[in-house]
Write a protein that binds this DNA or RNA. Structure first.
Lengths: 189, 189, 189, 189
DNA sequence: GATGAATGAGCGTTCATTCAT
DNA sequence: GATGAATGAACGCTCATTCAT
């Protein structure tokens, strides 16, 4: 078993529960069934663990959106898929959602250059999809896709999280449908 | 001079610069030109300062949206005004924007009940505006306004922050216009 | 009304409740219905208040024992009276008893020279009584009264406190009688 | 080398010198040749150290008196031995004596339940010895041993401390003899 | 004399990180 | 590689004392 991945996974649990600053390296280690010192064989610092969590999650999104782009997926399917992707991620691993949503901003001031640049890839791929569709005449002319693409991506990810975090018993399909409609009507002709 | 307000203002500066957990009470006091102990004459703890910052800002938004509701403002003007309001707030006090955006989530897990309930008022007023306009036949039937109103409010606030934080030299009017269009097309007939 | 005495009396209450180090000057002042700063018009420091409390109480005991000495009171009556005196003091003002018993030792390391010297007077008077009675042939020859007089005085005072503190519903007369007997049989022929 | 015991021993020194509230954890650690943080690997708080000091000392006395009881030791030997035991303890470790005598009361208001219950054992064993001897007809009928046993135990311990603390150059054997005589004459037929 | 807001030294405790084993 | 005891810098908070009003 890969120990670095094990630490990442258990760190997500602890950080989701306590928040990054309250989370103790000792607790993460304990949760992972190793000694505190061992963590430092795989990560240079506590912050480094968080960076790595972001990196992996951003990479997953970058890969996902990039794959949609390569396959020439039409914009309505892209929006729908990305909503579904985030929903599924967050429902399957609620702790990861928590960490992504809560700590992302706090740490954006940190030095996680690598994680940042990967997030940039997500924006870029989504932008390319929008550009293609604008050329196809599907997107309204008065929408500046360069400016809006990161805002929309963030909106979709945050809303997915918000819905799952706020509403306990609700028709999720209904909400996903609403979210998709709002964005599609917002940008399409 | 109101010392509690002075502490709030200088705390915003320090917390914006360092983040809440890195910000030292001593630094906040120093920035405000008082002794560290004096802070505790006005706040019961460091966390209490943050709560108060949120409370004041949320109250401003609650008042703003509520006033629009009372005046029966049409939805397109509401969206436009709220975008402008956030823009202006964030441009005038970028540090406040930083704190609101970065720390809001981190601390949402804390016990800031008062601040939370005030934020709830924002949602409620905005929901009432949307409800009115739906009855007026301006909102598309397939939009569930109960679900979407908090998502839209957050979208507008976060996007305002994102744009100001990301783009240094840009045509802000153009971006505000884009944001408004996306949301209006997204929800209106 | 004498403000210094008022502070002394209310300080006794607070110190009895919290212990000297936990007792706050502010609480003492509040209890006495004055401002914290006012305390420092009558006492030079928090410790100074405690010194004064001791001084007053020791003086009362010194006066009491000295009066017995002057009146040529026989030893059995002295013992009995001193037990009764302590009992009555402690029953009437249990807080004072608490402070005397608990803080006396802690602070014996402090610089309360005046209070100490007054306590010395108690020992001296009691010693003179014992000496008189030894010359009268009432005290056993093998008792070194110089050594034993302070021990006995402390024993009587501490035991009074202990009994009142430990036993809630008990025949106090029976216990006082026991205490008196033990000491009298211990020292008399 | 047992580090917990080392901390206990050095804490006794510092607390004896400064008093509990003046003693700094840092000083205790420094005295013990370790870092301040290390103290918290063995004790949960500063107060916890004091509790442990009491526990150990009370246990020693409890064991001592209990052993005398088991061996059916006659009362005069018990008194003599207990005086000697306290003398020796206090002469060998004057700091321990100081702490026991000075802080015992201050902290008796704290939550040191364990330490308290151990002290109760001392009273109980001594009471059983007295009861035995009363049945043997050695103790005067008019002495209520249930009431007097804790008072006597405290008297012996406190007096040992007082003598050692007050008198620098004195015939200690003479004083111990005096103390023993007083108590024995006080209670025996 | 009386106030009480302001001070700031001081301290208990935490916890990321190290390193000898 | 793995451990976990030890470290010690760091920080939130307290409260005796002062002093301008």
């Amino acid at each position: 078993m890969n120990k670095k991945e094990s630490i990442r996974n258990h760190a997500i649990k602890v950080i989701a529960r306590e928040g990054f600053y309250r989370a103790k390296v000792k607790d993460i280690a304990e949760e992972a069934g190793i000694a505190a010192g061992t963590v430092y064989l795989y990560f240079s610092s506590k912050e480094d663990i968080l960076d790595y969590i972001f990196l992996v999650e951003h990479q997953r999104r970058a890969d996902f959106v990039n794959r949609l782009y390569i396959k020439n997926t039409p914009i309505d399917i892209v929006i729908e898929s990305f909503i579904k992707f985030n929903y599924d991620c967050f429902r399957e691993e609620p702790e990861t959602a928590n960490v992504l949503y809560r700590e992302l901003i706090t740490v954006s001031s940190l030095k996680n250059q690598k994680s940042k640049s990967v997030m940039g890839e997500v924006y870029k791929s989504f932008y390319k999809i929008l550009k293609q569709e604008k050329e196809n005449g599907k997107i309204r002319e008065d929408i500046d896709i360069e400016v809006m693409s990161p805002l929309i991506i963030n909106f979709l990810r945050n809303s997915s999280y918000n819905i799952l975090a706020q509403y306990k018993s609700v028709d999720y399909e209904h909400m996903k449908e609403n979210l998709k409609r709002l964005v599609l009507h917002g940008i399409m002709k």
